Each structure stands twice: as C-alpha cells, then as structure tokens.
Amino acid sequence: MNKQSAQKLPHVTTRRLHDMKSEGEKISMLTAYDYTTARILDRAGVDVILVGDSASNVFAGHNTTLPITIDQMIYHARAVVRGVQAETSRAMVVIDMPFMSYQLSSEEALRNAGKIMKENECDAVKIEGGNVIVDTVKRITDVGIPVMGHLGLIPQSIYKFGSYKVRAREEQEAEELLRDAKLLEEAGAFALVLEKIPADLAAEVTASISIPTIGIGAGGACDGQVLVINDMLGLSTEFHPRFVRRYAELDRVIFDAVSRYVDDVRGGTFPGEDESY
C-alpha cells in the first residue's frame, strides 16, 4: 500500500477489526517502539501497531519483558503515536500494560490503563492472562478503555512456565485456554493475541468467539498475525524461533553500511568535497 492510497482509508478501530473478521479480511499487526519505525509501518498499511513490552528485550537489552516500567512504555507509546499521526493516522496503536501494572487489583489496573490512555493518544491497551484477569478486563472496558487480551505463552509469566515452549498441547490446558478466550470476550475484550499454541487449537478458538484473534506462532487460521519488528526485519539474529519469517536481513545491511562508513572516516574519504560547505 502506498502513502496516497493509505491516506484514503479511515483510522482502524475496534469496530473495523470486528468487521474484518466478519468479512474474512486478515489483520496485520507489528510491534514498534519509536517514531521513525511507526511512520514506516503506518505508511506501509499495517492495521495495528503494538507498542510491545518486548521493548524490554529488543530495545533495552533485558532477558525478559518484566523490567520495563509503565512510564517507559508511555515514553515509547508517545513516540509511536506521533509517528502514526505524522503519516496517514490509519493504524490502530495498542499499548502493552507492563508487568505489575495490572496484577495487584482491578482498581490499580484501571488507574494505570487510564494513565496510558491519557498521556498519549493511543487506541487501546493489551493485558496478558486468562481467568484471573477477567474482572480486571471488565472493569477497564466498562469505563470505555478498549482491551486486547493475550493467551497461550504469556511472556510476563515466563518464570512460572519455566520455558518458551509451545503452550496448551495437553487437553486440560487447551480446554482452559478455550474457556478463557470465551470469558475474555464476555468481559469485553475486543481482540485476543494467541501466542505459541497448536494451530488446530488456535483455529478452534478463532471459530468459537466473535472477536478477532491475532496469532504469533499459532498457525494460519487466526484472524490476523503479529510479529516483533526486530525479528521479521532480521535485526535480532540471535533469536529465530520457528514462527518468525524474516522479510529482510537488516543486521547484515546495517553492519556493512557502518563498516564502510568507518573505513571512509579512517581513510579520510568522508566527508568529500560534495559533502562539505
């Protein structure tokens, strides 16, 4: 999608995502953490930009998503929202609520969700978990804040799981996940991310609820797909799970460009006459 055609399209809303599911139109979602990337994603026609707590890993270098704070998430969110507004303003912007910003109580979760929504012009928040957060989701959505859910492998609970292996392979956990998906829908969630679960289970969940499912390592039957931008662009070369398709090898492109720059500076060929005043 070019910039001119994207400008003719309205801003993506929760209603639009619901219609896309009903019409069988797939939803594209990618993460972004900065102004420049958000501009490119919006111009390229991405439907949803997730300001993911994966910024803790790929932006700040932590081993897990747990260390990032709500104020740090808001900082990234502001940059992303400005990037979208600078282009077509089409993409929906969803912000991850970070670890311990919603787990203590529904009231604290509501305050923090409100803080996120008030301090930047994002469209929704995303929360990880099933049955234990249903009341929290209802509390937040009841005041008009859209919530995207997240089931399956939930990175904020990685120390509980003990690994990044596929979730819900066993019948009991699969049944629980299907039940949680329905509960989150009833609580008011407008969409669900399904991460690293069997494709047949993701297909069953997708067919069982009226809200869109966004898969990551969950097969092609989901209503949409999401990837971490650093993974799909080949910037994070040390992390290459099965579900990631690399659309570029920017690690090598950037390395080669920087190496040439260093050589030119050291060799005295940069700047040249045309690059000087």
Rank of each mutant, 00 (worst) to 15 (best):
E87T: 15
R82V: 00
V84T: 14
M97N: 03
A55K: 01
T88V: 13
V84H: 06
T65W: 03
L104F: 11
T36M: 05
L41Y: 06
A86P: 07
D96E: 04
I70G: 03
A38G: 11
L41D: 04
V46F: 09
P98W: 02
E87N: 05
T64I: 03
A38W: 06
A38T: 08
V93A: 06
T36G: 07
V93N: 04
T69C: 05
A79P: 02
A79S: 12
I70Q: 01
Q72P: 08
A55Y: 06
R82L: 13
G45L: 04
G61Y: 01
G52N: 08
A32Q: 01
D34Q: 12
G45P: 08
I68Q: 11
D96V: 04
Y33S: 06
R82A: 06
R82H: 12
I74Y: 10
Y75Q: 14
H62G: 09
S101P: 11
P67W: 01
I74K: 12
T36C: 08
I95Y: 00
D71L: 13
R43M: 11
R90G: 07
D53I: 08
R90M: 07
G83N: 04
N57H: 10
G52I: 05
V84M: 05
D47G: 09
A79C: 09
L50K: 06
A77D: 04
A79G: 00
S56E: 03
R78V: 12
D42A: 12
D34N: 13
V46E: 00
T64F: 03
Q72E: 15
S106F: 00
T69L: 05
D42E: 05
I95N: 00
Q85I: 09
S56T: 04
A55W: 02
N63A: 15
V48C: 02
